[in-house]
Simulated scan of single mutants.
Amino acid sequence: MTTVSNKLSHLDDSDLPQMVDVGSKAATRRTAQAQARVTFPADVAAQLHGAGYVTPKGGVFTVAHIAGVMGAKATSQLIPLCHPLVLDKCDIDISMPGDTALITCTVSCQGRTGVEMEALTGASVAALTIYDMCKAMSHDIVISEVRLLTKTGGKSDLDYTAQVQA
């Protein structure tokens, strides 16, 4: 269980938003992995499995994969006060056992701040893309459980994978 300090790092002494100064931190290898779930109605899942995950818009998982990488790379443009990072690697893995697509985004860089937001953004954008690619089939598609699985580098390493049920 992690604790939150009383002083939020993104607020200055006057409680105004600020970008955290990471200039004095040592650059270290940073990694993070996040996951999102997209759950389909049974008939839509069956259609996707039967069609090889292709809809009239194209290959659902192929497009979602590219979108997830693009989302991870654009995180600092989307999340206020987020530092721009040069990513060394961004992998998007999408599997669909049954009615649920599981998206895992793994990101790494050499930097002064973590890549958790990039991993979460990559997984989220891939999930949103899957929804967009499939919404003509149903609007009863549910995106859920966007969560951090692991992070390494910096002050502490975290591993939540044991808490995640596939």
Rank of each mutant, 00 (worst) to 15 (best):
S5N: 10
S5K: 08
N6P: 05
N6Y: 08
K7Y: 11
K7C: 05
K7R: 15
S9G: 09
S9E: 10
L11S: 07
D12Y: 14
D12I: 14
D12S: 14
D12E: 10
D13A: 12
D13M: 06
S14L: 07
S14V: 00
S14I: 00
D15Q: 14
D15T: 13
L16H: 15
L16R: 15
P17V: 12
P17S: 10
P17Q: 13
Q18D: 05
Q18Y: 09
M19G: 14
M19K: 14
M19V: 15
V20N: 04
V20Q: 02
V20F: 04
D21R: 03
D21E: 08
V22S: 03
V22P: 00
V22D: 01
G23L: 00
G23R: 01
G23C: 01
G23A: 05
S24W: 02
S24Q: 13
A26Y: 00
A26D: 06
A27S: 10
A27V: 02
T28M: 09
T28R: 00
R29V: 10
R29P: 00
R30F: 03
R30T: 05
R30G: 02
T31Y: 05
A32E: 01
A32T: 03
Q33G: 11
Q33K: 15
A34G: 04
A34N: 01
A34F: 01
A34Y: 00
Q35T: 12
Q35W: 03
A36F: 04
R37T: 04
V38W: 02
T39W: 02
T39H: 04
F40Q: 12
P41W: 02
P41C: 06
A42V: 13
D43H: 10
D43M: 09
D43I: 09
D43Q: 14
V44Y: 03
A45Q: 01
A45M: 07
A45S: 12
A45Y: 01
Q47D: 09
Q47R: 15
L48N: 09
L48I: 05
L48K: 06
L48G: 06
G50Y: 07
A51G: 06
A51S: 15
G52E: 08
G52H: 05
V54E: 15
V54Y: 12
V54A: 07
V54N: 12
V54H: 15
P56D: 07
G58N: 03
G58L: 01
G58E: 00
G59T: 13
G59K: 12
G59S: 15
T62S: 13
T62Q: 14
V63N: 07
H65G: 14
H65Q: 13
H65C: 11
A67M: 05
A67G: 06
G68C: 09
G68W: 06
G68N: 05
V69I: 15
M70G: 07
G71Y: 02
G71K: 02
A72W: 02
K73P: 03
K73I: 07
K73V: 09
K73Y: 03
A74E: 11
T75I: 07
S76L: 05
S76D: 10
Q77A: 12
L78V: 11
L78Q: 05
L78C: 09
I79Y: 00
P80R: 10
P80M: 04
L81W: 08
C82A: 08
H83V: 01
H83T: 03
H83W: 04
P84Y: 11
P84R: 12
L85H: 00
L85K: 00
L85G: 00
V86A: 06
K89W: 01
K89L: 12
K89Q: 14
K89P: 00
